[in-house]
Amino acid sequence: MKPEDVHKSGPILSMNSVEVLYNSVMLAIKGVSIEVPHGGMVALLGSNGAGKSTTLKAISGLLTAERGKVSRGEIRFDGNVIGDSLPQERVELGICHVIEGRRVFEHLTPDENLEAAAPMSLSRGRVASEKARIYDYFPRLGERKTSLAGYLSGGEQQMLAIGRALMTQPRLLMLDEPSLGLAPFLVAEIFEIIKRINRDHGLSVLLVEQNALAALDIVSHGYLIENGRVVMHDTAERLKANSDIQEFYLGGGQARSFHDIKHYRRRKRWLS
C-alpha cells in the first residue's frame, strides 16, 4: 500500500484466458481475462453463478479448499506468475480476498479478529497502530471491539471482514459481494470507506458485485461475466449507459428473491 505503486506501469493483476475446473470435471470459468491497474478499482459484474466468485478464488488460491484448480491460462501479480502457490503465500505477496458472506471469526472479538490477520512479522507496536488505523476507518468497530464478533450486526461484520483483510497489508483487495444482505445506506457507507482507502493508500481493488448500480458508482472499469466468460469490458460510465446492462443489471438489481438475501451458512469446518 505505498503511494508510489500508483505510478508504476503495467497492471498489478492480470489474468490471461484462465480456466477453472472443479473436481477435475466441471468447468466453472472458461477463459477469463481481466486486468486491474495499480491503484485502480475494477468491478466484476454478472448474475448468480456466472463465475465471479470462482475468478476471485482462482486469484487468492482458495480454490484448493473446494477441489478446484486453474487448468489453463495464467495469473500474474505485479508481473510475476503466481502459479499454484498456497493461499498464505499469496497473502504475503499482497493479495487479500474478502470472501462472500463476511465469515468473521464469530467466537473471537473484533480486536482478536484483526490480530489474527496481522502478519507474524509485524511487531506488537505495528499491530497496535494498524488496528488503530482500522478503527479509524470503521469507528463502529472500535465501539464494539470487546464483544464477540458473532453478535455484531451484518454491516458491522462486513466492516470487520474488510478491516481484517486490511490487516494483512494487501496491495490488492478483492471483495466478494460486500453489499449482500445489507441496507442501502450501509452499502453506501462501506463503499465510501473502500473508496477512501483506495484514494489514501493507492490500494488496488477488485470488486465482485450483483449490485451493479452501487459498484459502478465507485469503480473506473467493469467486466461483465456470463457463463464463465467475459462478455463485456468498458469504463464504468459507458457500462452504466449501456442499454443491455441497464435492463439486466441496473433496473432488475433491486428485485432479489428472499433466497439471495438471507444468506444461510452451511459452513464446512476443517476436516469435516
Binding site: 488460491g61 498464505q88 470472501i99 489474527a116 476443517w270
Partner: peptide
C-alpha cells in the same frame, strides 16, 4: 497470544483463516 488467537481463528472458520494468510 497471537499464535493462540490464530489457532482459535482456525477452529472458528478455516476457509476464512486461509483467506487472511493463516497456515491452517
Amino acid at each position: 497470544t497471537r499464535h493462540g488467537i490464530r489457532l482459535r481463528a482456525i477452529s472458528d472458520d478455516y476457509i476464512a483463516s486461509w483467506s487472511i494468510g493463516i497456515s491452517v
